[in-house]
Design a protein around this nucleic acid. Structure first.
Length: 816
RNA sequence: GCCCGGGUGGCGGAAUUGGUAGACGCUGCGGACUUAAAAUCCGCUGUCCGAAAGGACGUGCCGGUUCGAGUCCGGCCCCGGGCACCA
């Protein structure tokens, strides 16, 4: 073996070994303890970026570590291949989305291979292939039969100049990104999946998911937003239909001084027909994009409709307004306003001079001025007729009972979660398998006619979906009556593909069933790793889809991901490094210069996985330097010839100290990688151990045996992170068997025993001295020794000692 | 606006259960090697006072609990992620 570290040849050798021995291809084996290790699959945007390298390396470290623990590891890779960037590339460069996508996949696959990831490539999944998406089309038709999908109108961003639907990210400050035209909200019919039917289960199961971060569970809980309240009917003057509203605060019902409906509400439309001012206001309300953040931050505006509702308890007239912050698609499209006890209602009432009535007083008896500040806490009812004096729960129940008895309302549970709109007016996606027949309506495509294949050779103009211009695609016979009918031209939201790919990795080649018994073996995913930006949408949709597949009899598993690790982003100059912002560092260039191991090492060393990672070119060089030091330390050791077995009796204090350090480090790194996932501290501990090895300048037989043990431990423990160099160094250390088949090193508890330990001494909590004491010294002995320390004496002086706190093995605190 | 994170030296970070703040690495400075440079190796590197021993201060800001707070509690400020059509 040549002496200097040449990453290129070292990595090529290791890569070829893994490839030739096919050691990462796994089959189902019931006798083995399976471990399914997965990352969120990438969108094939062109080249790998550092965010990819980070998450894939984290995953690879876990996969290789679990393998060394004796687990039967499945670690697959695939492509989330449908999506907007392919269409944008097609418009910009005239490349068909399919060709652009397949070229990108080829490029990125070769990059992944160069990074040495332990993937089972035989299971690769590509979502834009009909053999993949046919099964989600099939599941959609099953959901259709069960009533789990339905069609209704919903809002999109409409660009009136380009005559096309825009994604939220294509709307910049309320204008279309290409046309610069003011974007309008427009309602069109779209397909929805009933995720709300699973809302309670998705919420409740979070309580039994200890392997997920609390932050993600909290976000999902808040997103589902279950609230218990009452639905109430208000009669409207001159209208036959009452206006229904939902409230979680029926105890404040007597404080209702106005009501508001959405701009799209029929009552608003009727008022607009006779009042041009209202009509103009409603038109104006539509000139905003559909994003929630926009609606929540924009100025709250409204207009009186000139009609009144009747308060169901007092019989008083309550003016009805139309307001831009009430949305037709949320709840009933109408809200009751209690300005005394709701922040937004209070501000709106102040602005429009609407009355504010106090109907709740603080339970502690304190006085408040409802005109000066809103009071949103729960308290005691007042100005509420027969309900005066009741607390929240009593008032809630009394009022709810009253409405249920009179049939004018009912207790109900409301969710913030809305059904999942899956229709996209785009070309590069899975065709929604529906045929529209003039007589039979929307008819799902029968299973034997699936897949509905997306034509890949299309003319791409950028104005609307090209599917609308392909008569052969649109023309279809109605599956029910055989009459001429039209095929749906909308495609699925790409979150549909990513909601079940993890299960399909188990059986990607099955062309007769969506999932088979192999999925029963591998599912659920034991460790799932991906960006925290997916904490809600992708993970919630996947949990939903898993349950839909379960209820279809395809699997027994309800929760797809047992353990979740959300990695932070890769930042450069404090900003997210991403394809959209163009502030990327090219991994390929770094691999060419330093090798894959250096890039992997820097990624793992620079920050713990959950935190954002700030990119540093100097840090990469530091990682490269470490690998060179690592390499030469092993070479310097092996050049001295064979090593004899370690004779414990022959060890001096320095030998014992190094051996203790070796086994302390094994214990620490096992914990860091196996439990804490703090790969940065695992790397730091390896560096410390290697520094300790280099400091022990001892060529005696015992010295070399202790060093040998330490070096083998470092090679084994760093191998999940820098597998290529460790593959070579393992051979250098004299082993015939490949490193990939080795087990994780074991701690020798005997080596951990120390005779003396250091204890710090504090006076009144401030550090004043250090002691070396026998490991088995009792508290009194340690206290006495602490008091004898000259510097400690200086600070204790003549003062009376009030208390001495001894934390065994750590510190003594003398309180005076 | 709402929900979830984060804030520690010149920089990335460590401190795992309330017990030594700054491990490990980077940068910088000094030195060795070299004709020279690169590479490599050795030393120093939170701020202030001090010749040193040592001391004072110090984990975004303000306050609290505790023998002891980066860690717990209350109130703020700033930065990042998500907000349903980016993936």
């Amino acid at each position: 073996m040549s002496t200097p570290y040449h990453p290129e040849s070292v990595e090529k050798t290791a890569r070829e070994y893994w490839e030739n021995s096919r050691c990462f291809e796994v089959e189902e084996d019931p006798d083995k303890d399976k471990f399914y290790c997965l990352t969120m699959f990438p969108y094939p945007s062109g080249k790998l970026h550092m965010g990819h390298v980070r998450v894939f390396t984290i995953n690879d470290v876990i996969a290789r570590y679990q393998r060394m623990q004796g687990k039967h590891v499945l670690n697959p890779m695939g492509w989330d291949a449908f999506g907007m960037p392919a269409e944008n590339a097609a418009i910009k460069r005239g490349v068909p989305p399919a060709k652009w996508t397949y070229d990108n996949i080829d490029e990125m696959r070769s990059q992944l291979k160069r990074l040495g990831y332990a993937y089972d490539w035989s299971r690769e999944v590509t979502t834009c292939r009909p053999e993949y998406y046919r099964w989600e089309q099939w599941l959609f038709t099953r959901m259709f039969e069960k009533g789990l999908v339905y069609r209704k109108n919903s809002v999109v961003n409409w660009d009136p100049v380009d005559q096309t639907v825009l994604a939220n990210e294509q709307v910049i400050d309320g204008r279309g990104w290409r046309s610069d035209a003011l974007v309008e909200r427009r309602e069109i019919p779209q397909w929805f999946m009933k995720i709300t039917a699973y809302a309670d289960e998705l919420l409740d199961e979070l309580e039994r998911m200890p392997g997920w971060p609390d932050s993600v569970k909290t976000m999902q809980r808040n997103w589902i937003g279950r609230s218990e309240g009452v639905e109430l009917a208000f009669d409207v003057q001159g209208e036959a239909e009452p206006l229904t509203v939902f409230t979680t605060r029926p105890d404040t019902l007597f404080g209702v001084t106005y009501m508001a409906v959405a701009a799209e509400h029929p009552l608003a439309a009727r008022a607009a027909a006779i009042d041009p001012g209202i009509a103009a206001f409603i038109e104006d309300c539509k000139k905003t994009d559909a994003a929630e953040a926009t609606l929540e931050t924009m100025e709250k505006r409204g207009m009186p409709l000139g009609i009144s509702a009747i308060h169901p308890l007092t019989g008083q007239e309550v003016p009805l307004w139309v307001a831009n912050f009430v949305l037709m698609s949320y709840g009933t499209g109408a809200v009751m306003a209690v300005p005394g006890h709701d922040e937004r209602d209070w501000e709106f009432a102040k602005k429009h001079d609407l009355p504010i009535v106090q109907v709740i007083r603080p339970a502690d008896g304190s006085e408040i001025d409802i005109d000066a500040a809103v009071y949103v806490e729960k308290g005691i009812c007042m100005n509420s007729g027969e309900y005066d004096g009741l607390g929240f729960d009593d008032a809630f129940n009394a009022i709810a009972d009253h409405f249920e008895r009179s049939g004018r309302g009912r207790r109900t549970i409301n969710y913030r979660l809305r059904d999942w709109g899956v229709s996209r007016q785009r070309y590069w996606g899975t065709p929604i398998p529906i045929i529209y027949c003039d007589d039979c309506g929307a008819v799902p495509v029968p299973a034997e006619q699936l897949p509905v294949v997306l034509p890949e050779d299309v003319e791409f103009t950028g104005h609307g979906s090209p599917l609308k211009d392909i008569p052969e695609f649109i023309k279809a016979a109605c599956p029910k009556c055989g009459a001429d009918a039209r095929r749906e031209t909308d495609t699925f939201d790409t979150f549909v593909e990513s909601s079940w790919y993890f299960a399909r990795y188990a059986c990607p080649d099955n062309d007769t069933r969506m999932l088979d018994e192999r999925a029963a073996y591998w599912m659920p995913v034991d460790q799932y790793t991906g960006g925290v930006e997916h904490a809600i949408l992708h993970l919630l949709y996947s949990r939903f889809f898993q349950r839909v597949m379960r209820d279809e009899g395809l699997t027994d598993v309800s929760e797809p991901f047992t353990n979740l690790l959300t990695q932070g982003m890769v930042l450069k100059d404090g900003a997210k490094m991403s394809k959209n912002k163009g502030n990327t560092v090219d991994p390929q260039e770094l691999i060419g210069r330093y090798g894959a191991d250096t890039v992997r090492l820097f990624m793992m060393f620079a920050a713990p996985p959950e935190q954002a990672l700030e990119w540093s070119d100097a840090g990469v060089q530091g990682s490269f330097r470490f690998l060179k030091r690592f390499w030469s330390a092993v070479i310097a050791h092996t050049e001295q010839g064979p090593v004899s077995d370690l004779d414990p009796a022959a060890m001096n204090d320095a030998h014992k100290a190094l051996r203790r350090k070796t086994h302390q480090t094994i214990a620490k790194i096992s914990d860091d990688i196996g439990r804490r996932y703090t790969f940065n501290t695992a790397v730091a501990a390896s560096m410390e151990l290697l520094n300790a090895v280099n400091r022990l300048d001892d060529t005696s037989a015992t010295g070399r045996a202790v060093v040998h043990e330490a070096l083998e431990a470092v090679v084994l423990m760093l191998s999940p992170i820098v597998p290529h160099v460790c593959h070579a160094l393992w051979q250098e250390l004299g082993h015939e068997d490949a490193l990939i088949d080795q087990g994780w090193p074991q701690v020798d508890d005997d080596a951990l025993v120390a005779d003396l330990i250091e204890v710090v001494v504090q006076v009144n909590g401030k550090l004043r001295g250090r002691l070396s004491v026998p490991a088995d010294a009792d508290n009194d002995t340690v206290s006495a020794q602490a008091l004898a320390d000259p510097n400690v004496q200086r600070f204790v002086g003549e003062d009376a000692i009030r208390k001495i706190i001894v934390v065994p093995g750590r510190l003594v605190n003398i309180v005076v």
